[in-house]
Design a protein around this nucleic acid. Structure first.
Lengths: 311, 311
DNA sequence: TAAAAATACTCCATAGGTATTTTAT
DNA sequence: ATAAAATACCTATGGAGTATTTTTA
């Protein structure tokens, strides 16, 4: 005998009657008439094979079995309501999981950690799965649904299924040792030009698998006939600045990195900054994202506006 | 917006589809056709505002939200099944609560603790609420639903709403000190008569509120013109035997107490035992008892038969 | 006798069935 | 081209409403 499953509706009705101790009042509270309520209670008693209420002329009273059911079904109904609540939060994007990839250069910008911190603060039930990789791998992972979205600088390829959105562009600045000759006899932070780089010792970060900021810089110099000397090639932008601070040469960095080694480095605006500025690019699939991802993307967009103002 | 409650049926359907990864197979497993199943799944997705499955040409696959729902609803469905199971056990009388009262003389008989022990062994989920009181209080408590049933010896009143059932009758025996003069020059345990009590030192247990065995004994003696001397009055039957063992006199006890102080007391059958035998009486309401009480009563009846054979 | 619950019936919403179309590989 | 899911439409079970009767203190 495979007994029929319990009916949630009947349990809810039962709860109402148990609390009111009165069929008619319980029916009113439930927004229905007394007879169907009596019927459902009776059906429940029949199915369980238990008398749940003693009928008295001024209402009903729980039997021992009824009291037992009340105790045990209360928890169940609560769990059910909780489940519904959690699902609603999932649907509204207040809960869920976002898989985000970023390049090391995207991670280096204060925007990235700040946005993630804000997401955790505002949406503690959105869990962020973070991973760092180069732009090509991130693009492939988003395409393959292994990631929901990615933060990169310059896209390396643009498959039609993906959307590349520039969150903001960031100007670049020249970084020079405080005692560099280009600074002598000028204002504290003079506006310089690419032409000033001619014959200068230049420090570059070359990222494998991504034609980044420095490829662009060299192309622009070549277009102007300017020929800097490559003094060093390193693998992280922060290393550039360490070398500049040591007086090994000059470099170009996103403006957001200003402030590193303030005692040893002077950051100067560059006339051609617009030609060189570094984008922060969001990669995502064109298809509508899951709700939690949408929430995260909205937060990123909002934060990007903040950054545009601040930059 | 008070969202509609979740539908358990849809959750069960969802589980089946999630496990099968295939609408048609899941429908077969659930004993229905594919279209209504698809409809219910769609309705669930619509209500939650979440896509639960990705539709593929060879079946369906859970989305991230679907996986979440699966995890959380699994537990809920399990809890629901458990609740149903527990209620079924309540209905079948394998679980529940029995409030039992007994007099101290009922408790003194091995039958009572043995029956309770057996009940605990066979039905560990039936909880026994035990209380000791005199027969009058027990009768009143059963009448007032404070107790489900009671074990007493001689009923003190018999309200029509209550049922008094003699589980078994127990003969009484005479208990004499081993060196008593009635034993001299006879067989080891001679059959004695009430007439032999004439002028003997008799030890009685007088129970307040219950005309018990000893009131009956004195009445029978009087009817025969036999006049024993009352040597002592105590409040527990066991005390009688202690005094007999000390040689203070003789007494009459239910046969079940034979074996106490075997080195000092001789128990002799009594010719008039039938007139004096002590009943074990079950008190209960005439109305049909709760299932667990019925189970307990059945066990008592079964045990009483055993006792009848053993006695 | 006067409340509250139970019963008798009616109606309709919807779960489920059947037939068919659409979809995606 | 094929297997699976979606859609369209129909049927019927049963939940809920209305009117009435029964119950019990």
């Amino acid at each position: 005998m495979t007994t029929l499953p319990l009916d949630l509706r009947q349990l809810r009705y039962f709860q109402a009657v148990a609390e009111e101790g009165h069929m008619t009042r319980a029916a009113a509270r439930l927004g229905l008439q007394q007879p169907p309520l009596s019927q459902q209670i009776k059906a429940l008693e029949l199915q369980l094979g238990l008398q749940l209420f003693e009928r008295h002329p001024k209402g009903v009273r729980l039997t021992e079995a009824g009291r037992q059911l009340q105790l045990e079904s209360n928890k169940l109904l609560q769990d059910m309501a909780d489940l519904q609540q959690r699902m609603a939060r999932l649907a509204q994007g207040e809960r869920g999981c976002v898989a985000l990839g970023f390049t090391s250069s995207a991670a280096a910008h204060w925007f990235t950690p700040a946005a993630l911190r804000e997401c955790r603060r505002r949406y503690p039930d959105i869990s962020l799965a973070l991973s760092e990789a180069n732009a090509a791998d991130i693009t492939a992972a988003v395409l393959a649904h292994r990631l929901d979205c990615g933060l990169i600088r310059v896209p390396v390829s643009e498959p039609p299924e993906l959307l590349f959105e520039t969150l903001f562009r960031e100007p670049v600045v020249l970084a020079l040792p405080v005692d560099h000759r280009l600074l002598r006899g000028r204002s504290a932070t003079p506006r310089l030009s690419l032409a000033d780089l001619h014959d200068e010792a230049l420090i570059l970060a070359r990222r494998p698998g991504a034609p980044g900021l420095y490829a662009n810089l060299l192309a622009q110099c070549e277009a102007l006939g300017v020929k800097p000397r490559i003094a060093a090639e390193v693998d992280r932008m922060m290393s550039n600045l360490n070398l500049v601070a040591a007086g090994a040469g000059i470099t170009v960095v996103p403006a957001s990195m200003q402030g590193t080694h303030p005692e040893a480095i002077v950051y100067c605006p560059l006339k051609e900054a617009k030609l060189l500025d570094a984008p922060m690019t969001l990669v995502r699939r064109r298809a509508a994202p899951a709700a939690a991802v949408a929430t995260f993307l909205a937060l990123l967009a909002e934060f990007a506006k903040t950054q545009a103002g601040a930059g």
